[in-house]
Nucleic acid binder design. Sequence first.
DNA 1: CATTGTTGCGTACGGAGTACGCCATACGAT
DNA 2: ATCGTATGGCGTACTCCGTACGCAACAATG
Lengths: 244, 244
Amino acid sequence: MTDRNPLARSLQLLWEGLPERAKGPKSRLTLGQIVTAGIELADADGIEALSMRKLAQKLDVGTMSLYRYVPSKGELLDLMLDAVVGPSQARRTAAERGWREFLATTARETRKLYITHSWALQANWSRPVLGPNSVADLNLFFTGVKNLSSSDQEKMNLATVIDSYVTGTVRQELLWLNASSESGMSDDEFWTYQLPTLNRVMSSGRFPAMAELSENTFDSTWEENFEFGLGLILDGLEARLRRP
Amino acid sequence: MTDRNPLARSLQLLWEGLPERAKGPKSRLTLGQIVTAGIELADADGIEALSMRKLAQKLDVGTMSLYRYVPSKGELLDLMLDAVVGPSQARRTAAERGWREFLATTARETRKLYITHSWALQANWSRPVLGPNSVADLNLFFTGVKNLSSSDQEKMNLATVIDSYVTGTVRQELLWLNASSESGMSDDEFWTYQLPTLNRVMSSGRFPAMAELSENTFDSTWEENFEFGLGLILDGLEARLRRP
DNA sequence: CATTGTTGCGTACGGAGTACGCCATACGAT
DNA sequence: ATCGTATGGCGTACTCCGTACGCAACAATG
């Protein structure tokens, strides 16, 4: 336990929290309070609005006090991330209804999660967070696919594939969602401004395949799109199971 | 052309570049030089190392001079992004070898692109970039799936699904790649530090499904993983074509 | 030559993350 | 009850960021 490497402190925070100290003044905060406040701030105003100063203000402490609990902002984001993931009840019950039902539920629940906490995908670009909730997630996954006749290695690949697909689709969705909100205009306004330019380009002859697309080409909702791709993946898996 | 909306300037930069001025001193730079230098910087040192000051230094001009060419850093990133995407030769030739070959090539080429320019995914969180190369990309896509017996709407869904899958997998891959590099240790060191903690957790009884996984569960390469998921999607599509 | 629209860019402002060190605190030993 | 000491709170300050503003050098037009 006397590891002297930088990751040890990080992992300890995730798995065991702050050590209880005997001496010294009482802490005004707990790690949980900081993490929760951080999540609230990020949920409400986006990841770019989450600064250590604002967080300290919200908690009514000095800015630098936070650093008695968390070694850096990066670690705080890791803690926030692990606090937000983890097995939901819906997934736990779905784990007993066959692998297809379980995988679909997992994908849908994960999508919901990332849409609710849209900062989670942007926050996490430096390192994978191996916290208790992430591991519990993976544990539930292997429970849910227990009856799938694949090797463990293939199951792990499947976990990655589904997670990749979900995060990829959510990223797309958030991209378009942010487009209008950040520029301070409604979705309609946004398109009204872009359409003239795009129409001119489309009819320029440079993009013949796009010029002859049907009217409703871009009309799918994000959810329809998501279900379409999810169906493809699961159908592909089923087909592969029939003839290996 | 006398639009007075904020997006007009943005779209104009993407599609037409800077207007040529008659009067005044000669420009020391071109938009292309700035974009290229930005890409070089981001490729070499990552997106967080790309600041307007460093970029100006690299180009040997004053920092604020850049703002005569580009209205903000965000717009610069948009330009960099569109400069980096666009149809490759491999995809163009694959467009005539049937939809399955074309889709697989598209996915693989896009993956390579995002791995080469790993900043591209992180840079683009505010709005979708509808530049000439992005549109050319989509145009090629519809050319490549011309013989696919689906509606245009379904084809568009397919484009989104594949792009989502690719960006999702690359994000995962970069996440683990950055983990070791950013913390300044090799991949091996990184794991040496984490494994003791993880092993303790695994054998704690809290995660029974994970405790009994086979040795090679986590041994797949990222490329194998990628091909696995890609195969599932394409197989699913084929199955769906046989019985709609 | 005078006018005028442009470019280059120095200065400066507000906000970010966080290193450092001082002071108040409260337990453990005496 | 007292003292020593480890600990928490946090004010100050440093560096780095994006960029608003305004002035001076410049070049084509009248």
